[in-house]
């Protein structure tokens, strides 16, 4: 189930703090972290490295976060906080185009989506490159890919965070 490809952005840590105290617990933690490090889905970018915060040219073709649940969740959080949802809403679009259908004006590949976010597009998409760290643009890219159905179910959230219009006691449509 785990995707074992390694992310160049992920920071793998183990046993760097509180060493000497409670060695058993530390060993256990180290074992867990090592196990997780082998599992791309679960890898977490705890702090961005110097490389991952800066933009690279030409744009990399492979999405470093593909299939990574943490990056998708982070992308979802940033999508709300950076007001992406104010234009694209929860995939249906409004001011900006829909992101959950199969029409991609500027392409649906990770590099296409990354470029749309980083450079902006002429009909109103603002450019975020230089304003937010590069790894966040990749996290947003991965979340937008998930909205479009390009990310595997293994890594995507099972529900959206926005409200449910139906009352809890009512059956879904």
């Amino acid at each position: 189930m785990c995707n074992v490809r390694r992310s160049p952005f992920a920071v793998r840590r183990g046993g760097s703090s509180a060493s000497g105290q409670r060695p058993t617990a530390n060993l256990f933690l180290l074992a867990v972290l090592l196990a997780l490090a082998a599992c791309h889905r679960e890898q977490r970018s705890i702090a961005p490295t110097a490389i991952s915060a800066a933009r690279t040219f030409p744009v990399r073709v492979n999405n470093p976060y593909e299939g990574n649940a943490y990056a998708i969740a982070e992308g979802q959080r940033l999508y709300e906080q950076y007001n992406c949802s104010g234009c694209h809403f929860h995939g249906g679009g409004g001011i900006g185009p829909a992101l959950m259908d199969n029409e991609w004006i500027y392409g649906s590949s990770p590099a296409n989506i990354y470029t749309s976010i980083a450079e902006g597009r002429p009909n109103g998409m603002p450019s975020w490159g230089g304003h937010i760290p590069d790894y966040q643009i990749w996290e947003l890219t991965t979340y937008v890919r998930a909205l479009g159905g390009f990310e595997g179910r293994v890594a995507t959230a099972s529900r959206s965070d926005e409200m449910e219009a139906k009352r809890a006691e009512e059956p879904k449509k």
Binding site: F89, H90, G91, G92, G93, G94, P97, A98, E103
Partner: peptide, 17 residues
């Protein structure tokens, strides 16, 4: 004109619903 997706009821500030 915007070809919005009705599966997302919140689209266009909720009017699409």
């Amino acid at each position: 004109p915007g070809q919005l997706d009705p599966r997302d009821g919140t689209a266009a500030l909720g009017f699409v619903n």
